[in-house]
């Protein structure tokens, strides 16, 4: 039992190691050019060799993403609360927000550049624009799916609409909220990177672009690895917060 548990925990690392090994072997056996697909060892080499610039740019991207994401949380929560708590607001705003969300965010970057110039501004806003939507939708869903019986129990007691929302609606929507954070943080990294690629002199996105244009493929891949690792780490962080703040919603998994 314990052994299979340990194995389960190690499984993703073993799979990763296996993939890297196959990748390395295939590249060497078929002598794939480094300009097409660098080997994992070459990527690791680039990571070490350019550790300094990678770190500076990664920190930049990380910082920008966090600011954009913080905006997302605030706006997503407020809009979700408004949309989920009033039928009229839902009817009025939801179609517009959906339409807005289906606009490709990469296409907005040039407009943001005109407004805010090259730099952190467009990147922060792109990260925000791409990631607030899932947060809003989830908070609104959590509020709107309140059991009518429960609402009756409270309304008979003279509860105001706000009482019901604060005592029941909001705590009830917290698992939805935390679940959306995990999705939204990875989207925020996408937004930042996309914006950096066309409208910044800094950040991993810009590093990817310049490495690509100079055909320094190991460096480009190193950039991808770093951004993937950052997004993954943030995902895990929010997943941990989710498990520890809304354990009641995850009792099924814990019981096993």
């Amino acid at each position: 039992m314990i052994r299979s548990r340990t194995f389960e925990r190690l499984a993703p690392w073993l799979l990763l190691a296996a993939i890297l090994l196959v990748w390395e072997v295939l590249c060497r056996v078929l002598s794939v050019s480094e300009f097409v697909l660098p080997t994992p060892s070459a990527i690791a080499g680039a990571l070490v060799e350019f550790a300094g610039p990678i770190l500076v740019n990664a920190w930049r991207t990380f910082w920008t993403t966090r600011v954009g994401f913080a905006l997302s949380i605030v706006v997503g929560l407020v809009l979700g609360f408004v949309v989920g708590s009033s039928r009229l607001a839902y009817a009025a705003m939801y179609p517009l927000l959906t339409a807005f969300n289906s606009v490709p965010k990469a296409a907005v970057v040039p407009i943001l550049v005109v407004w805010f110039g090259i730099g952190a501004g467009p990147a922060i806003l792109t990260a925000f624009l791409i990631s607030f939507f899932p947060i809003m939708v989830n908070v609104a869903t959590g509020l709107a799916t309140l059991e009518p019986e429960l609402e009756d129990v409270l309304r008979v007691l003279g509860a105001r609409r706000l009482d019901v929302l604060l005592k029941v609606g909001l705590p009830r929507s917290m698992p939805y909220f935390f679940a959306s954070l995990k999705v939204a943080i990875t989207l925020a990294f996408v937004g930042t990177t996309v914006s950096e690629m066309s409208a910044s002199n800094e950040g991993i996105g810009q590093l990817l672009l310049s490495a690509g244009s100079q055909s320094r493929m190991p460096l480009a891949f190193a950039g991808l690895v770093v951004i993937g690792a950052m997004a993954m780490a943030m995902y895990e962080l929010f997943s941990w917060i989710e498990r520890h703040t809304t354990a009641w919603a995850h009792r099924g998994q814990q019981a096993h």
């Binding site: 059991e147 019986e149 009756d152 129990v153 008979v156 705590p171 917290m174 009641w248 009792r251």
Partner: peptide
Amino acid sequence: KIMGMAFQAPTLLPW
């Protein structure tokens, strides 16, 4: 307010 209600589903708050 002089009423109390209970339903078929207990509708307790899980948190």
